[in-house]
């Protein structure tokens, strides 16, 4: 990672993605110890600024920072001066004035993390902005696939890069509104995978120009060919609206039902970024099958976020080398 921020998967490219995954391997080792903590970022402060509700991503970042011995400041919009009418910019500048080294930002509007970089000297990490991107989710998803592929090959150690060439990954669900889909399309294809988007027409982006993907509205026609089925969360607030008339019908046509899971290729992987709604995107019993990587995704999220924090905050301030 050359830049001081992580706003989009496009900032990384294939080499950057592989670098982060290699560092995450080291954090996986650290996590296996009785005291899973290293002193690497002692004295650094990481602030999590979540202007939109999220427990798991915030906890994952905070755990990741603590494993590096960084101090953690937590900011939640609901308990803040935003409620009293403070502007976003004033909030960011106030936190910046307290002296933080990294800001982890989530906001319901696309582009907020990029805007925040203009208001602070801290490194900024996008933890999900509107319908734009969620880069650390894509990194942990790639890492989870790489780990599963390595285990299948019988090489526990996945030291090397990741080559997804020949891998067919289907991203199923509300692609149109999904920042996870956007980051994952970039990441999966950067690593060489073939990506198929599966969604009803109402939930497909109006244009796929320039996207290295195929698209279909028919899940059943592609399911036997997929190596990975990546299910997106259906936002319940959209149900009953014009784009998604009802959840039962969605489950019927796009959910990973028992019947569909039986038609998956042997060894196909099932993933979901969470929070998972059983009975909508996935049948309750399918979510617990061994092919489901959902809990591994959560576990790997901590390793990946530690790696991202270490890459950004441990990077040299100047290009000058000092004596070894």
């Amino acid at each position: 990672m050359n830049d001081r921020h992580l706003l989009s998967i496009a900032d990384l490219g294939r080499e950057g993605i592989e670098d982060v995954m290699r560092t995450a391997d080291s954090f996986r080792e650290v996590a296996g110890r009785s005291i899973p903590r290293v002193p690497a970022l002692r004295g650094k402060t990481v602030a999590t600024l979540f202007f939109e509700a999220s427990t798991r991503t915030r906890l994952s970042f905070e755990t990741a920072a603590k494993r590096l011995s960084a101090d953690v400041m937590s900011f939640a919009a609901s308990s803040s001066s935003l409620e009293k009418g403070e502007s976003l910019r004033d909030t960011v500048e106030t936190i910046d004035a307290m002296g933080v080294d990294a800001m982890v930002v989530r906001h319901r509007s696309s582009g907020v993390p990029a805007q925040v970089t203009a208001w602070t000297s801290a490194c900024v990490i996008n933890a999900g902005d509107g319908q734009h991107e969620h880069p650390t989710q894509a990194l942990l998803d790639c890492y989870t696939i790489r780990e599963a592929l390595a285990q299948r090959r019988g090489t526990e150690d996945s030291q090397n890069g990741a080559d997804f060439a020949g891998l067919r990954i289907g991203i199923v669900g509300d692609v149109k509104h999904s920042r996870v889909a956007r980051s994952n399309v970039l990441a999966f294809s950067a690593l060489g995978a073939e990506v198929v988007l599966v969604a009803p027409r109402t939930l497909m982006p109006p244009s796929l120009d320039g996207w290295p993907v195929k698209a279909t509205a028919d899940l059943d026609s592609v399911i036997p060919d997929l190596d990975v089925v990546y299910l997106l969360r259906i936002q319940a607030e959209r149900a009953g609206q014009v784009l998604l008339p009802n959840l039962d019908e969605y489950h019927e046509r796009y959910g990973l039902t028992r019947e569909r899971s039986n038609r998956l290729a042997a060894g196909a992987l099932v993933m979901h970024p969470g929070p998972m709604i059983r009975g909508v995107e996935i049948a309750p019993e399918v979510a617990d099958l061994p092919s489901s990587l959902v809990t591994r995704q959560v576990r790997n999220g901590v390793f990946i976020r530690s790696a991202v924090l270490f890459h950004l905050l441990g990077a040299a301030d100047s290009g000058e080398a000092i004596d070894a």
């Binding site: 690497a40 150690d157 441990g314």
Partner: peptide
């Protein structure tokens, strides 16, 4: 691999080479 324990983190590029 001692990368996470070095005293020159932030002074020059330090990344783990291999998993401990």
């Amino acid at each position: 691999d001692v990368a996470f324990y070095r005293d020159d983190i932030g002074l020059r590029p330090v990344l783990p080479e291999e998993v401990t």
